[in-house]
Amino acid sequence: MILVTGATGNIGRSLVGRLAGAGAEVRALTRSAGRATVPAGVGVVEGDLDDPGSLRPALTGVEAIFLLRTGDTDTSQILKTAAEAGIARVVTVSSLLAQTHPDSSVGRTLLRGEQVVRDSGLEWTILRPWEFFSNLLFWAPAIRSDGVVRAPRPGLPSPAIDPRDIASVAASALLEDGHGGKTYPLTGPATLTPQEKIAAISAALGRPLRFEEDPSLATEDPADDLAAAVSFPGVCAVASPGALSTVEDVTGVPATAFRQWAIEHADSFR
């Protein structure tokens, strides 16, 4: 049995489907079971990661867990509860900022969280993705209204990744041996500027769109690159590690191209 936390999110929803499609016994954890839509045969249980004690019923009979940490979640207590329940394997999501900016406040926080997982006594795999394609849905209202995305800066080339590819790597780590003790940096197959991203969305919609820089939109300290990196989704303000081949190396399937994602999600921008 595999327990998937964050089962209704961008990664978790895809992961549940992949695991179920592979014939695994899957249990989806959500705060509201009544609103969860899962494949046939997948069990749905309620639980709150901020209340580790509430997870005990969900952990019964589970052998591996996909842990999507959020906010101030007490990861150490969750993993202690998981170990007491007999769980042997954990796969968790961190961020590539732990690698690229380890001395920043964000990087230090991520590294502390990763170390808790490494010290848990469970067989662990850590996934470090760069920014998600799905962040671009933040642009949808502007694209629908006047076809112009305005941002405070031009942005840097960024190898954003499809959350489904993160789920694919997670599925491999949960279903296969040989991934224990591995930390996987994950990116999409190419680095793209915001202008190139909007060009791909434009092609998918079949109508002209444009990207405009408007410095007056900046709200964060201009010296804080990491704050700038997350303040306007889809517009990366920090240097990336470049496109990496990890998704294909682990799964045998190349990472999804952004143009393909744009075609599949075109209705979200119409």
Score class of each variant (00 low, 15 high):
159 P>K: 00
65 I>D: 07
62 V>D: 06
141 P>Q: 08
61 G>F: 08
79 L>K: 11
45 V>I: 07
122 L>G: 01
75 T>M: 13
78 I>E: 11
69 R>E: 07
118 R>E: 08
140 A>W: 00
62 V>T: 11
80 K>S: 14
108 R>K: 15
46 E>F: 12
138 F>Y: 08
79 L>T: 02
113 G>L: 14
85 A>Q: 05
47 G>R: 00
95 S>M: 07
44 V>E: 03
134 S>K: 05
74 D>R: 11
127 L>N: 05
81 T>M: 10
101 H>Y: 08
61 G>S: 06
89 R>D: 03
155 G>Q: 00
158 S>Q: 01
85 A>N: 01
98 A>M: 05
82 A>L: 07
159 P>S: 05
160 A>Y: 14
93 V>G: 14
52 P>F: 13
120 S>W: 11
63 E>L: 07
149 V>Q: 00
118 R>W: 08
151 A>F: 01
68 L>T: 07
102 P>S: 12
104 S>Y: 09
65 I>K: 02
149 V>P: 09
93 V>E: 02
128 R>D: 07
127 L>S: 06
110 L>Q: 10
58 A>C: 05
84 E>D: 15
96 L>M: 13
155 G>T: 00
74 D>W: 04
145 S>Y: 07
144 R>L: 03
128 R>V: 06
154 P>R: 10
101 H>T: 15
102 P>I: 12
125 T>A: 09
93 V>F: 08
156 L>Y: 05
86 G>F: 01
51 D>G: 05
112 R>P: 00
52 P>H: 11
142 A>L: 10
69 R>F: 09
58 A>N: 03
134 S>E: 03
117 V>R: 13
131 E>N: 11
70 T>H: 15
94 S>W: 07
140 A>Q: 00
50 D>T: 15
148 V>K: 02
96 L>D: 12
113 G>Y: 04
129 P>R: 11
87 I>P: 01
122 L>Q: 05
90 V>Y: 06
69 R>Y: 06
91 V>Y: 03
153 R>C: 05
86 G>R: 09
140 A>I: 02
158 S>P: 06
72 D>F: 08
126 I>Q: 00
87 I>Q: 02
48 D>R: 12
76 S>P: 03
59 L>D: 07
40 A>L: 08
116 V>G: 09
89 R>W: 01
143 I>G: 00
86 G>P: 05
86 G>Y: 06
101 H>R: 12
95 S>L: 04
110 L>N: 05
49 L>A: 06
67 L>H: 13
155 G>E: 00
83 A>V: 11
147 G>Y: 02
112 R>V: 05
50 D>N: 15
128 R>I: 06
112 R>W: 01
